[in-house]
């Protein structure tokens, strides 16, 4: 079984701030980590490999410094790591990113399964998983909380819903995205870290991929971030006390006074 795990390097959001003038993340002094949701994806891939055999290939699109995250993935047990890196990829939105990652996965020829986290903690879109699947022309399931059964041709998973879950069967090749309920990611081993230290991270550019350059990076991105801001905290608030009947009429008149509720029509 050949499993590709797509990871994203993100700033550790526990101490991230936004520059109010440029509306971009202040990355200086902020440690870069593997997107936490992708850690669950990587863990699940390694577990599948341990149980069913095969190999785990991690892939990421980004600048050369993403190599450190790919090495972290090797320390955790991935067999191979590929970095899609090219100036042409810069400024990509989810559409261009999905297209680029899919091109990378296609170049591997015979991946059975692509796993990623349900979303990245910086962008929070959750679009890249399904986007990659569409570009590959394969089925996808998002928000997997458990993989129940794996055969040569298909697998059965539980997809998390707001209340409960749904069991789904999907044929390979497929793309899935996972939620944190799926497992508890392991810590790296020292032997893994030493292996990672000397591991070579493959770097693929546009030249290595069968790819349409107009669909890459900023050029291929219809989405533009206009503004990023922290919403103001709601202020005030009022607690109503007393009999329900009185509270309701008081609330209603407050709402009407503020133009929120529609006034009673004359007929009533």
């Amino acid at each position: 079984m050949k499993i590709v795990v797509c990871i994203k390097q993100v700033p550790d959001t526990t101490n991230v701030r936004i520059n109010p003038e440029t509306n971009t993340l202040i990355r200086e002094g902020v440690e870069s980590i593997i997107n936490p949701f992708d850690m669950y994806a990587l863990e699940e891939a390694i577990r599948l490999k341990e149980k069913h055999g095969g190999e785990v290939i991690v892939m990421s699109m980004g600048p050369p410094q993403v190599e450190s995250s790919l090495k972290d993935a090797i320390a955790l047990g991935a067999d191979q790591a590929i970095l899609l890196t090219d100036r042409a990829f810069a400024g990509a939105d989810t559409l261009a990113t999905s297209y680029t990652l899919a091109a990378g996965i296609n170049a591997l020829n015979d991946a059975d399964l692509v796993i990623m986290g349900k979303q990245a903690i910086d962008g929070d879109t959750g679009q890249v998983g399904p986007g990659v699947a569409e570009n590959l022309g394969v089925p996808h399931i998002t928000d997997i909380r458990k993989i129940e059964e794996v055969t040569d041709n298909y697998m059965v998973c539980e997809r998390l819903l707001e209340e409960g879950y749904v069991r789904l069967k999907v044929k390979f090749p497929a793309v899935i995205t996972v939620v944190k309920e799926i497992n508890e990611p392991r810590l790296p081993s020292l032997k893994g870290k030493m292996k990672a230290k000397s591991a070579t991270i493959l770097q693929w550019t546009t030249k290595d991929l069968d790819i349409d350059v107009d669909r890459l990076g900023l050029t291929g991105s219809p989405t533009q971030v206009v503004r990023i801001f922290t919403p103001p905290k709601p202020e005030g608030g009022k607690v109503y006390k007393g009999e329900t009947r009185d509270m309701v009429s008081e609330l209603l008149s407050d709402l009407q006074a503020n133009g929120v509720a529609i006034k009673k029509s004359k007929g009533n």
Binding site: R186, L187, P188, S189, L190, K191
Partner: peptide, 11 residues
Amino acid sequence: KVMGQSDLYGV
């Protein structure tokens, strides 16, 4: 178990 998996017992 975690320490074992992380190779700490082998250092």
